[in-house]
Amino acid sequence: MVQTRTSIKSKQKSSSSPEKGSSDSITSFNDPVLEATNLHVYYGKTLAIRNVNIQVPKNKVVSLIGPSGCGKSTLIRCFNRMNDTIRIAKIDGEIFYNKTNVYDLDPAEVRYKIGMVFQKPNPFPKSVYENVAFGPKVNGIKDDMDEIVMESLKRADLWKEVKDRLKENAYGLSGGQQQRLCIARALAVNPAVILMDEPCSALDPISTDRIEDLIKELSSSVTVLIVTHNMQQAARVSDYAACMMSGKEQVGELIEYGEVNQIFGNPKDKRTEDYVTGRIG
């Protein structure tokens, strides 16, 4: 089936106006939804990322790029305290969600507000309906569950395809449908932020295109922080991009953060230029 690509990007003016720092890169926003300050992450005695300072503006798409092993996944996992699940992981520095330190919040609450979608679709071995209803049920939400499931599936652009298959096992869906189901599952608890760790790397081009369209649609109401190795994808979907790189002793650092046109059109840092043009990686 031929599908029309509707992913041509229309950039909207930033509602959260960036303030320029000393360099040309954007360093701060008026109302960041996520913020990391002086963040160091250790796995045991090994320093994985060093002194990361980053702010993520509300209802924007920010992509995190950089070579494998530079700490992108480690960084995004800090925002919803997923690194707490790794026994040897230790965090130094501060992480804020809407200006509140995430360690002053209940971890379950943090993960409802800051949802996550992974590289490989990971639906529960349950029905389509139960996958979406799981979060609200556990969270004790008493609203009309059918309504929540339908709305979440609609927001994830999956409703039309599964409305007659709600009772079927989610494993019967295609890879692209499973990934959109995972997004619907995250949306069901009404998050403010969705973290996406290479959400399209296991998908075919058409499924990828649908997820990209979805990301852009969601960004009117949800902030999206996405890790991707696909530069063109980052350029297509993001408003801002941050480039990380392993520096001294293979420790990940944030080397450049700016508007997407700058990062992919004319990066200021030579290392970013070499990475986005494919000359280091």
């Binding site: 070579p67 790189m245 001294k248 290392r271 070499d274 280091i280 990686g281």
Partner: peptide, 11 residues
């Protein structure tokens, strides 16, 4: 530090 590898076919 990542090593500069170039990009043979593009170059």
């Amino acid at each position: 530090m990542r090593k500069y590898q170039g990009r043979k076919s593009l170059d």
